[in-house]
Simulated scan of single mutants.
Amino acid sequence: MANTPQSKKRARQIERVTEVNKARRSRIRTYLRKVEEAIASGDAAAASQALKAAQPELMRGVSKGVVHKNTAARKMSRLAARVKSLAA
């Protein structure tokens, strides 16, 4: 348990940041799920649009420190390959 005033303040700050990060992570997952659903439905145009919408959201997660850069790159690469194969 936090004892000093500084550690109490840090505990409060961490709670707020954790809530923001949870919301951000959830938002990213939603965008990725939309891409997955579009791929599953077989609609190349919808999958491409969903991928374009998901990319900035994923990269924003990287810049905010919610997702590791390599994780985001791997996810984007794999999704892009799947969307590309769908169009072909």
Rank of each mutant, 00 (worst) to 15 (best):
M1V: 10
N3G: 09
N3L: 11
T4R: 12
T4M: 14
T4K: 13
Q6C: 10
R10T: 08
A11Y: 10
Q13N: 08
E15G: 12
E15I: 04
R16K: 15
R16E: 02
V17I: 09
V17E: 11
E19F: 15
E19L: 15
A23D: 12
A23K: 07
R24Q: 13
S26M: 06
S26N: 05
R27K: 15
R27V: 01
R29W: 12
R29E: 10
R29V: 05
T30W: 11
Y31H: 09
Y31R: 05
L32V: 10
L32H: 04
L32I: 12
L32P: 08
R33N: 03
R33T: 06
R33E: 07
K34Q: 05
K34H: 12
K34R: 09
K34P: 02
V35F: 15
V35W: 14
E36G: 00
A38G: 05
A38L: 00
A38C: 07
I39Y: 03
A40V: 07
S41T: 07
S41D: 08
D43I: 05
A44G: 09
A45F: 10
A46S: 05
A46H: 05
A47F: 10
A47I: 03
A47M: 02
A47V: 02
S48I: 03
S48Y: 07
S48C: 00
Q49D: 12
A50I: 07
A50Y: 13
A50C: 04
L51M: 06
L51F: 14
A53Q: 08
A53N: 09
A53Y: 14
A53E: 11
Q55Y: 07
Q55M: 12
Q55R: 09
Q55F: 10
P56K: 00
E57Q: 13
E57C: 09
M59P: 02
M59Y: 04
M59F: 08
G61D: 04
V62G: 14
V62K: 15
S63E: 06
K64Q: 08
G65K: 01
G65V: 01
V66T: 05
V67Y: 14
V67D: 07
H68G: 06
H68Q: 11
K69E: 10
K69D: 05
N70L: 15
N70K: 15
T71N: 11
T71E: 09
A72C: 06
A72F: 01
A72D: 00
A73F: 15
A73W: 14
R74D: 05
R74P: 09
M76T: 04
R78C: 00
L79H: 06
A81G: 10
V83I: 02
V83F: 08
K84H: 04
S85Q: 09
S85A: 14
L86E: 01
L86D: 04
A87G: 04
A87I: 01
A87R: 14
